[in-house]
Each structure stands twice: as C-alpha cells, then as structure tokens.
Design a protein around this nucleic acid. Structure first.
Lengths: 252, 252
DNA sequence: GTAAAACGTGCAAGAATGTGCAAAACGAAT
DNA sequence: ATTCGTTTTGCACATTCTTGCACGTTTTAC
C-alpha cells in the first residue's frame, strides 16, 4: 500500500463517515498506528482533516470560523467587553465592527443603556435583539461567512452615510508604529471607512494582537483614542501606546 | 466515540429537545456521568450551553420573541422547509423573508446547492455561513428585534435594486380572497416590495395561518405560485387555492 | 431535617501521541 | 552489480490526554 493511496482512502473514508479512527485505519491498511498518525498529520497540514484524540474529523464540522473563534478565550473577551461598554455613554451612536470580541461587547451592553448601534455583523444585531432601549442599524451588503460580516461596496456606501460618536474597532493586529491592521483588503476598507466616520475610536485587543502587524493597514495610532487590553500585556507596550496619546485601559 | 463527536451530539440534542440530562447522555454514549459532566463543562465554557442541576440547557433561555417562536412546532417547520428547498434550483437568486419558518428553510438548504440568497433577516445570513456555495446578500436597515428583520425605507430601497427568481415569503395569514397579509405595516411594506421584485413566490404556511387575515395586505392570491402546507390542513382549503392557480404542496 | 442524587476535585490506569532512531525499501548514479 | 542518499516504516521511550473511581461537598426532594 503506497502512502498516497492511504491518503486517498483516508480522505474518502472521512468524507463518507465523517470521521476516522487511527486504530481502524491501522488495521485496515495493515500498517502500524504510527504510520497512520503520520498520514493524518500530513493530511491535517494540508487542511484535509482536523486531528483529534483517537483519530481525525473533517476540517469544518460546525460553523468553520466564527463559532470556532468564539470558543477561544471567552472569559478574556468578556472582560474586555465589559471594560469597553464602560466607555460608552447613553444617547451615543456607536459603530460596532465585526469580530468575536465585538460580539461580546454587544452581549455585554447594559440593558438599561439607551444607544444607537450601527453594525455590519448580523450576529451583533441579533445579540441586541433583547435590548429594548437599543436602536440597531444593520449595514447590509455581501455577507462574508468567514468574517461574519457584510463587506463590499454597498456596505461602504451605507457606512459613509452615518456619522457615529464612537467606533468599537476589531483588529487583527495593532502596533505602535503601524497602528491597526487587518488580514483582508475588503475588511480593512470597511474598517477604514468606519474610522473615518467616527469621532472616537476604541480598540479592544487581546495580548496576541499587540505588536502584530497584519498585511492591510486600517489606521494610524494617532486616530486611536482608547486601547482596551488584558493584564497579560507587557507594561512597556502599555507605556509605548500611552506615550503616543492613546488612553490605555487594562482589565483586572 | 470521540470527544468532539459527543460534544456535537450534545449540541444537536440540546437544539432539538431544548435540554439534556447528564444521566441520559451517559447511557446513550456508554460513558460515565463524570465524562458527560466534563463535556458539559467544556461546552458551557464555550458558551454552547448553561449547566443546571441534572444536565444542561441552551445558552439563551428566552431571547424574547425570536427564539421562543422557534421552539414551537420545530419538526413541523423543518418539514415545510425541506419541501420548500426542493422548489429551489441551482443558480437561482432567492429572496428569503424573515420568520422562523424561513430560517428553517435557510438551515435546510442543501450544502451542495449553489444559489444566491438575499435576505433582510440576520439570522438567515448567519445560518448560511457554513454553506460554501451559497452567496448571501444581507439587506440592511433598521433592525426590528421583535421581527428579527431589518425594516425601514433604506431596506425597501435596497430590495428594489434586486430582481430575484424566487421569493420565500413568510406570512402571518393567508386566505383565498385576501391573499397574504402581515401584522405590521412596515413588515407588509417590505414583503410587498419583495413580491414585486420576484418572478416566483413560494409561501410556506402552517395550518393555523390558512384562512387567517392579518390587518395589512401583502399581495393577492394571483401573485402566489407555490403554497407549501402541512397535512393537517383541510382538503377543501387545498382545493380552493388550487382552483385559483396556486400549486399546493403538502408535506408528508 | 434527612436521605438521595448530583457535583467538584484529585488521582491513577490506560490509551493515544510525539520524538528520536535504526532498519528496510527504493531509486539513481557509478 | 554495487554504492550512496533518500524515503518509508516500525519500535522504544517519554509525554500528554482521556476516563473512571473515590471521597467530600452541594443541591434537591420528601
């Protein structure tokens, strides 16, 4: 049995059964489990499967990206979110960008806070469904499942019609020199547009994003007003942003 | 049984039954209750459920209106939905109106069907996030939490820019003389607009809506092409609609 | 108020996995 | 045919992960 033959049969079995067990494959192919594990490792590296304890599963079992992202660092993001909502005052109009942290912001919004939320993320709008005092404007457009947000020219046009007091900006990377940046050109365009239309910009960021630069620039540090971070961010980074005029808030 | 498989089945069971018992799950999976508790703990940490004494419940107990409506007549709506998706052909552009039945339609859409879905309901867009072949256009506007949809003049304007092959119309009442009607003026306006921009109109309706007239008219019977109903609708009603040129489909 | 059921925690056994390494198989060039 | 280098494979050992059990605590029911 050739290596590639095994790979092919594993792919087929995975598509047919929705899962494979390392022990089964070893018995079926008449090779050791070590070899099967090597196969699975390579297939996983190629994106053909996800390795789990005992075998492997298809790459996208549930909701691919959005649900997955929501599952990591939940408590961390909730803390960021509750710090962010403290910066929002009654009566304001707030742009809420897409992203799992910003979804947490929407969920953490006090029910007695009367604000207008403008967002291009359907999940954010749904999360605000039980906030009776909250007026929610959803910006439409072509829906990008990977980002969980609406992108495209129509979205940009609609955003340009709105002037907000505050923007809660999601970001893929934030750096003292480059500022905020995104992984995707379309996404960056939307974010740039939101920055343009907002008076104040708040960026919640987990430690892994500090000092990171993504390919597409969104805005320089000079346009950022508040940076909300977790306590595990180094103090030197905090000072660096503070020196550039950014108000840095650390969650407890 | 792999860990993630258990998690997945717990999620499914939770969505289907609205609750799970630790003892049931342990028996069903053939593992100890300790393991089930561990699973539930992880799912709860990921926000997929709330742990309660004896088992677990879905994370959002009562999201006001939308979630509540979803819980009633689930299997009935799923049957309607699977009948509706059979009327959709590859390559078509489909308006999907708001409403719990239409959300079921989106969820029941085959993953290998390549279509463009246009909707003003954020939940529908989110449900289509894991359909790689499905292009989703979300119509924005002011989000109405009670309806789970975007309403308002901007929504109307955006809908008027799109011409669809098919409309899956949600309705509050449908009658042989009055046609489809809605409980709300804004809502009716949106629906009217969608009918205007679509070539074919499909109306899935549960038995309680047949013969009902809501205050605000949407469209006459002459513009309805397909009526998808449950078997508990009387035959005389079926014949009445059929006599007016509507194709009536009964789910088994 | 008491008993039973459910729960959390720590722990140990067993299974699965990663890593390093050597033998075997294979191909190419001499 | 032989030799050298590469790839594949299986094995040994340390590590990690999962799971069930014991025991003390909390919650529920009667």
């Amino acid at each position: 049995m050739l290596t590639e033959e095994r790979h092919d049969r594993i792919r087929t079995k995975l598509a047919a059964d929705g899962r494979v067990l390392a022990s089964d494959l070893a018995a079926e192919f008449g090779v050791s489990e070590d070899t099967v594990r090597r196969d699975l490792r390579e297939l996983a590296r190629a994106g053909a499967c996800r390795r789990v304890y005992g075998g492997a599963l298809p790459p996208a079992p549930d909701l691919g990206t959005m649900t997955q992202r929501q599952e990591v660092m939940v408590e961390c993001k909730l803390k960021l979110a509750s710090a962010v909502v403290k910066l929002i005052s009654p009566g304001q109009t707030v742009f809420v960008d897409a992203g799992s942290t910003n979804l947490a912001v929407a969920q953490s919004l006090p029910k007695d806070l009367s604000v207008t939320i403008v967002t291009n993320a359907p999940a954010v709008a749904l999360a605000l469904a039980d906030h009776p005092l909250c007026r929610t404007i959803l910006i439409g457009g072509q829906f990008d499942p990977a980002k969980g947000a609406c992108l495209g020219s129509q979205t940009v046009r609609d955003i340009e019609r709105i002037h907000a007091d505050v923007l809660v900006l999601g970001t893929c990377g934030i750096d003292t020199r480059v500022g905020a940046s995104a992984l995707d050109a379309e996404e960056a365009e939307i974010k740039r547009c939101m920055v343009e239309q907002s008076r104040t910009v708040i960026v919640p960021a987990t430690a892994d994003k500090i000092g990171t630069v993504a390919p597409f620039a969104v805005t320089g540090v000079d346009r950022l007003d508040h940076l909300v971070i977790t306590p595990d961010v180094g103090l030197e980074a905090v000072d660096a942003f503070a020196a550039l005029g950014v108000h840095v808030h650390r969650t407890p």
